[in-house]
């Protein structure tokens, strides 16, 4: 297997071989992560820069930890932006970081396509840590890793993703990645948050959660941005929760010991009830641990060698 990617931008254009290679590498990384001494000399002298235009403590920390375990130096640049047009442009920020000789740039940005934009202009490798509503590949990879760890090979398994699919980069990346691995994906949400044009993702869609649950091996609840109520996309949290909230009773409809995932942070009592969130079926903490392992794998694969092979 020759690793030839310069950047990790999304799962839509990633091959099955690449996905499998990442998952394999992450398995090794997880073993290292579970050791008492979590430090490798592998990336000594490499510098990783986190550029976060959106607040996200957990993703940023996860990347930082991953880079540090591998021995790289990390710097974080948090750019608070009330409005996208204010301040230095992403283009200029990118050029500045490049001039500082960063080896890898990890970008979280509110605009869809910003990661590709950055990758197109930068020599250093780029990992997309979430670009607008487009993709969040590391989240999907850690979700897939967590599913596989629990369920074995995912081919033919049933995964239900429920919530605000329209605005979710997590849902998009998971839909692409899971499909490639032969998973039957069903997207569930109200018509305003799961409009007809989402059919372009090529997976099943329904507005009826109860009808989608039977046979589900995995149920993934998406975070609901509460401010969407103000835009009229759903009438109330109460009704949303009644129709699409994950509860213990509802989870029984799968007829299986299904596992429950959530990308976090959770709105308890909205998309997921307390007892489900804290229950044995929820692997939400495992997702966090696996997130570090996945990110270690990606960082290693991108900057572990000397030449950054451009695909």
């Amino acid at each position: 297997m020759k690793w030839q990617r310069k950047d990790i931008l999304g799962l839509e254009d990633m091959s099955v071989e690449d996905i499998r290679h990442i998952l394999h590498t992450a398995k090794v990384m997880k073993e290292i992560l579970m050791r008492p001494i979590k430090k490798l000399p592998t990336l000594k002298g490499k510098s990783v820069v986190n550029v976060f235009y959106e607040a996200s403590t957990r993703t940023r920390t996860s990347f930082e930890m991953a880079a540090k375990v591998l021995g790289a130096d990390t710097t974080s640049i948090a750019i608070a932006q009330s409005s996208v047009s204010k301040g230095e442009s992403l283009y200029d920020t990118a050029k500045t970081i490049q001039a500082m000789r960063a080896d890898l740039v990890i970008l979280r940005h509110p605009s869809s396509g910003s990661a590709k934009f950055l990758a197109d202009i930068l020599d250093p490798n780029v990992i997309n840590a979430g670009d607008g509503q487009h993709e969040h590949p590391t989240q999907a990879l850690l979700d897939i890793f967590t599913m596989e760890e629990k369920l074995g090979p995912l081919d033919g398994k049933n995964v239900v993703i429920v919530g605000d699919v329209l605005h979710s980069r997590v849902a998009r990346s998971n839909a692409w990645g899971l499909q490639k691995l032969g998973v039957n994906v069903t997207l569930v949400g109200p018509p305003t948050l799961l409009p007809i044009e989402m059919e372009g993702l090529g997976v099943k869609m329904t507005h009826d959660l109860n009808g989608a649950l039977p046979g589900a091996d995995v149920v993934m609840a998406l975070r609901l941005q509460l401010e969407r109520q103000k835009s009229g996309l759903f009438p109330s949290l109460r009704e949303y929760s009644q129709l699409y909230g994950l509860t213990t009773d509802r989870l029984k409809k799968t007829g299986k010991e299904s596992i429950v995932l959530h990308p976090g942070p959770m709105n308890r009592g909205v998309e997921i009830s307390d007892d489900v969130a804290d229950g044995v079926q929820a692997l939400i903490e495992k997702q966090v641990t696996n997130g570090v392992a996945i990110r270690m794998a990606l960082i290693y694969l991108l900057i572990g060698g000397s030449s950054n092979v451009v695909a």
Binding site: M1, K2, W3, H21, H24, T25, V28, M29, T42, G45, Y300, L301, G304, G305, S306, S307, V309
Partner: peptide, 10 residues
């Protein structure tokens, strides 16, 4: 690692 072209599979 930093001198070989394609890093080996772990």
């Amino acid at each position: 690692l930093s001198t070989i072209d394609i890093h080996p599979v772990v």
